[in-house]
Design a protein around this nucleic acid. Sequence first.
DNA 1: TGGCAATACCTTGCGATCCGAGGTATTGAA
DNA 2: TTCAATACCTCGGATCGCAAGGTATTGCCA
Lengths: 95, 95
Amino acid sequence: MDFLLLAAIARQPLHGYGVVEAIRQATGNELDLAEGTVYPALYRLERAGLLASSWKTVRGRRRRIYRLTRRGRTRLERERREWTAFAGAVEAATA
Amino acid sequence: MDFLLLAAIARQPLHGYGVVEAIRQATGNELDLAEGTVYPALYRLERAGLLASSWKTVRGRRRRIYRLTRRGRTRLERERREWTAFAGAVEAATA
DNA sequence: TGGCAATACCTTGCGATCCGAGGTATTGAA
DNA sequence: TTCAATACCTCGGATCGCAAGGTATTGCCA
């Protein structure tokens, strides 16, 4: 989950709702995260210093835009390595 | 998790402790499941009709040997499809 | 022979987490 | 004017993986 959120925001700064849409589109509806999942996860990542946020108003709607911090970028690389290792292990164990 | 357990037991009937070892070996220590994870999961899968078990004593130690039921085999195929779709989606969303 | 590692089973409780369901507010189209 | 879409948020339930604890046996080694 953290991996997905960090990766989406790494491409470009995004707000919560935008993250949900970006991931849904990138995966052709395969991954459709609930808002009740994403918002708390974003707070968690910000509290952990991996994301930073700022408010912005676009067409009368307020958005909280998230961007990666330096630590967030480092963590993203780690998440990617861990995902690769994990996915490889699952393949090996289930082949 | 279910996917890993079903896949391990599909290769050959196994007991709980053996499942832990099989997966650890297959993944070069990458996946090292806790017993507190595996045993309850096996009960769950048996209760769901995906596994069947029988007792056996080997060198003075009793083992509960699990094997896949027909439904378990069907479920395994489904789990494999779902894993493939999921892994592909993660790749797409994080590339 | 005494003790410890390995084998093998099991249960309990904590923490994390994902989601569904509900709530608020705005814009824009039908 | 009403409804879908956009956009935020919170709460509670259910699940789940694990650490930690427990029991019992075998077999090795000091």
